[in-house]
Every structure is written in structure tokens, then in C-alpha cells.
Design a protein around this nucleic acid. Sequence first.
DNA 1: GTGCATTTGTGAAAGATTTCACAATGACCA
DNA 2: TGGTCATTGTGAAATCTTTCACAAATGCAC
Lengths: 208, 208
Amino acid sequence: MTMRKIAESTVRRLSLYLRCLEGFEAQGLETVSSDVLAARGGTTSAQVRKDLSFFGSFGKRGLGYSVRELSSALRGILGLGRRYRVAVIGAGKIGSALVQYPGFRQRGFDIVAIFDADTRKVGEAWDGLRVRHVRELDQALRDQPADIVAIVTPGEVAQGMVDRCVALGVKAILNFAPVQLQVPDDVAVKHVNLALEFETLTFALNNR
Amino acid sequence: MTMRKIAESTVRRLSLYLRCLEGFEAQGLETVSSDVLAARGGTTSAQVRKDLSFFGSFGKRGLGYSVRELSSALRGILGLGRRYRVAVIGAGKIGSALVQYPGFRQRGFDIVAIFDADTRKVGEAWDGLRVRHVRELDQALRDQPADIVAIVTPGEVAQGMVDRCVALGVKAILNFAPVQLQVPDDVAVKHVNLALEFETLTFALNNR
DNA sequence: GTGCATTTGTGAAAGATTTCACAATGACCA
DNA sequence: TGGTCATTGTGAAATCTTTCACAAATGCAC
């Protein structure tokens, strides 16, 4: 199942398809065609079939896909067959929203630790989780490794935190700080940058 | 300046370059080469030059780019020469984080209204802004049009809100709801979907 | 069981984006 | 002024992604 060189765009769509399938499942649908899935997911049926074809053959010709089976296959492909431990560095507004959002737990992501450099925040309990000082970061991650670290610090300190995490063996980072991070090849980084999203919108507003 | 068919990926990088340039400006740097800008932005010098070449010629051969001039040019290209009015629909955790994040105001985005369907939330003041009931949405947007609407509602009601906004002339939407939105061609939509980002990370963790 | 209506899976074609590579230009120095 | 060095701007090539189009399955009706 694990061939190399799957495009980022393909993986994003797989995740999207899974979300659509969960909707169909909730509606009680048993099967979907690539056409219907594409319509819901905002793409084309050929794209759906091509994306899936990188991983195998999941449909029945003439019939479409079993909603249940395809969901299950996608969860397998995306590695969602188990839960993931997430540590959050930075207890500001966005860190807070992350920690308190119940959707993550539902989707298999458990936030297991939150850190901040501000001693005034340390000790606050958020959603049952005590904010710890960043100086405890290394010890905490050694005792209880995290699968994914979310960086929600100011830009200036983000790289330093990432370096510490990488040294501790963290292989996946979700970065909300507005800086590009340097990491070794075997560490996955995803960036979420709201200013950037807003600016692609202002560009669109001014160019059509 | 306004040719058609600029790739989305190019626009995102332009926004990124601007962020890098602001950093260089803060460090007191007068000029940068495409090489230095690329290193900071996580891309290549050829990519930087190609991206810029769609809009004109901003550098001096042998010298590089004036940090000040290039910043200013990019702000022009991205349409950041003025302020933008943003309305937020949905006063949950993420809506709250959005409204209270001071960075948006600093970057030219003013949140001018926030709506929710939950009457218990209506009337709360967030950062000096009163939460209004969604039934006031149409009247409010007619009185005080917004340039950009951020959708922070549950998925089930997102499309309905978008339809109302589009009918009122909104041309740019930032969608945090985990559904694909249908809009006319002349409306720009950007999606922010954290579950999806997490899932591209779990895919990466399981496929290398 | 035959034929019809569907819909998948997939090579090949088209289209888009990134990288290459180099001529052109400007700054600086002697 | 002329030579050297650095760096841009840009066609052309390479690579990557999406779309096309159709043979191969499958179910269903009769």
C-alpha cells in the first residue's frame, strides 16, 4: 500500500473524500459513484478515480463504491486506524482554541500536553490539562512522546522549539507561526497561515 | 499589472515573500537577492524570480531587490494598499480566536461584525464588538457591506450562510467549516480545514 | 442467458508549474 | 574607461498534475 511519491494534493483530496463519505454515511447512503463523490468534494469524477487508483481498486464497475468500505480504506491509507498524541506549544488564543475544540478528540487526536513560556499562564488548567512551562518540554516529551507537535508560538521562537522537538524525535509538526521552518527531510511540516489566506483573498478581489 | 491566470501557488508565495521582507526590514536590511529571499521562504531563487516576473521587473541585476521597494510592490500586487472589512459568522471557539487576534487589525483587516444563531451568545461583547443574531445578517451587510466573510459555523448551515452572503454581493469568503462550498465563478473562496492538515500529517507519518 | 445501462480503472494527451541555464545588466574598482 | 563580479529576467526543458476517453466489469430486466 505504501508506494512513494503520492502528491500532496492527492492526500488532501483523500482526506476530503473521507469527510464527504462520513456525510453520506450519516445520510444512510450505501454506495456512491465517483461522480457523486466528486460533486460533493468539488472536483471531477476522473480525479476521484485517479486519486484512488494510486492505492488500489475500491469500487465495483457499474455500481460505484461502498460508502462503508471506501471510508474504511481511506482511513487505512491516511493512517487513521489509531489515535495520535498531540502536544501544543504556545498557550495563546489559537492554542487555546485548538485545545478546547472537541472535534479533534472525535477524529482521533488527543491533546496530551500544552506548554508556554509565560509563567503567568503556567498552571492554568485548560479543559482539564495543566499548562506547563516550556522548560519542561524536553523532559515531558521524553517521558510521554507525542506523535504530532503544534507550534502556536510567536514567529521568533518557533524555529528554536522545532529544533528541540526534532532532536527529541518528533516527526510531524503543524506550524501556525508565520515563519518557514527548517527541518530534516524525514520530518513532515504543515503550515497554517491565516494572514496568507486573507491575502490570497485580497489578491482575488483585486484581480478579476 | 492585472494579467489573468496567475497560479494560486504563485500568489501564496508572494504573500510569503512579503512576510519574509518584513522580517528583513525589521533587521534593517536594505537589499536582498532572490537567493536569500528563497532561503528564508523555503523555495528556490529561480522560483522567486519567476513569480515576480509575472508582475514586472523589480530588481537590479548584480544587486538584488530593494527590500523597501519590493515590499511595497508586493503590497500593491496583493491589494494591501487599503483596509478590508471582515464579517464573522459563528461565535464559537474559532470565531472567538479570530476576532480577538490582534494580528489581523495590524495587517489591514478590520472585523466589523460577528453573528451567531445561538441566542445565548447574542449580546456578548467580544473585544468591543457585540455578537448579533444571524437574522440581522442581511440588514447588517446591506447597511455596512463587508469585503470578506469568514464562515465559522457548523458544516450543516455553512452553505446557507454563504448563499445569503453571495446574494448580498460578498465576493470573498474564508471558510472554516468542513464542507465544500458552492459559489458563482466570480466569488473567491478559501478553505481552512484543520482536520485535513492533521490527516496529511498522519499520512506522512505512515508513508515514509 | 442476452442485451442494455452504468460506472470503474487506467493509459495517453493535455495542461500547468517548476527548474534550468544563460544572456543581459548594473555596480564597483583600479 | 574597461574589466570583473554578482545577480536578474526569461525562454526552453523537465517534471508534475489533471483531464480525456474508452475497454473492461457488473448488475438488472426480460
